[in-house]
Design a binder for these strands. Structure first.
Lengths: 246, 246
DNA sequence: GTTTGGTAGATTGCCGACAAAATACAATAG
DNA sequence: CTATTGTATTTTGTCGGCAATCTACCAAAC
């Protein structure tokens, strides 16, 4: 085992954080991003689980992960606690950490929750979003249009998630943003694991058009109804898949 | 420092868990409740923060808490991570743990979120709740009636929270239950810190009557509307308080 | 052949220790 | 008297190690 004399921050540097994209729009409290090893490990492990690097049911042995990330057990175990709280790991006392197995039931549950959260979010956004935030949403929507026309599915998914996040961000409700992030992460993970849940990008995009237009016009009732319909129909599609796969 | 030769589980026993009351309705997978020190500490610390033992802004020094709970720093720090993820602690890298300061803005945000979550929950409950769960809700409601008549405010609050939890539990949506628990905890904390937010138990109880009756009749639309109204009016009262206290 | 019991190895839970960073404090310069 | 710099102390971040537990494996009994 190559024990370099790590002065204190010994993680081999992990490229630009792909899970927390740039954290735009922070106020002037310039908190220097001093990240602990624990945060670094949690961040990497989170991405790896969401992306399917660690398949559901995997047993994560401390020894192995310590070597993989080049850290000792303390920061790793602290990261484990965070991941467990996020629902990505299950910690069995005395028996270690196991990657959770998301079921199709989970998918339905998350879909219902995110529908409720985003419906609230778009209502708030209609009332409280800044013009800049709305402009960002409009921009994302146009990008998605291009992706849809070019059939760039992977990018479509990424931007789709970004759009929904942007709507929630525009609500100005910090607690809502945090809760939504956690739920959306699970949905993203399910999409990654099952290889794209969305089957009809054209229909989906058309539904987007409705609630984005309503949001830009700050018509809360119309926007909420349109978004609710969109998410409910998505949830319904998931349920149909479950029944079909049984 | 009284160092007893703790064989492995050295926490001095902390009375019946007041944060997770009995966890009713679990299936037959009898997982023996082997709790680690970390879980024990997290559980106690959580209750203490929610109950205001550690005031907002308190700096929690590891040394002090280690002595208080009779554990070493490893399980304590793991518990810190959990509490941070729950939003009760803020971990400043290199500068320790600080109890979060819930603002009145937070209160409004949580109120909005819990309104959305419980409105979803009562809809699902109308469709999917078991008769036993509905009976439990009816029983709780009757208990609350008695408390209200006897003006037993403290018990009223406790049962009120239990009623709302029971409705969410009756939704059968496990993920929703988990998310709701986290949000409700913050609201409970705010109630404790500001000494009871609810000023009109009679009005509140009357509103309860409406959505409980609708739920028992499994009338989803009526139940959702009544609960939504109840929670929205509660949220409005909070907002008024903010304005009044400025 | 299946089940029970026992043993060896591996893995986790917890602890104390060391080094880096942050804080508190004092001395000095302005 | 205030501001600044340097130093001592405290506190945190991380690490390796020990003991308890769990797992795997094998032997013996039914």
């Amino acid at each position: 085992m190559a024990v370099e004399p790590t002065t204190r921050r010994g993680i081999p540097a992990s490229g630009p954080e792909s899970g927390t994209p740039t954290e735009s729009g922070e106020s002037g409290t310039s908190t220097i991003p001093r990240r602990s090893l624990q945060e670094e490990v949690a961040s990497r492990l989170r991405n790896e689980i969401v992306e399917g690097v660690w398949p559901p049911g995997s047993r994560l042995q401390e020894r192995i992960l310590c070597e993989r990330y080049g850290v000792s057990r303390s920061p790793l175990r602290e990261a484990f606690q965070v991941m467990a709280k996020e629902g990505l790991l299950e910690l069995l006392p005395g028996r270690g950490a196991v990657v959770t197995r998301p079921t199709m039931t989970d998918a339905v549950e998350y879909a219902e929750i995110i529908t409720a959260l985003e419906t609230l979010a778009i209502r708030s956004a209609c009332e409280r979003a800044s013009d800049e935030q709305l402009e960002e949403i409009r921009r994302l929507h146009e990008e998605i249009r291009a992706c849809n026309e070019q059939r760039d599915i992977e990018r479509y998914f990424r931007l789709n998630n970004a759009l929904h996040r942007a709507i929630v961000a525009a609500s100005g409700n910090a607690a809502l943003i945090a809760v939504h992030e956690g739920v959306q992460r699970h949905i993203t993970r399910l999409q990654n694991l099952s290889g794209a849940l969305e089957a009809e990008p054209d229909k989906s995009f058309h539904e987007h058009e409705r609630f984005v237009q309503a949001l830009l016009a700050r018509d809360a009732d119309r926007a909420a109804a349109a978004l609710h319909d969109h998410l409910t129909s998505t949830a319904e599609k998931i349920k149909e898949r479950i029944i079909a796969s049984e």
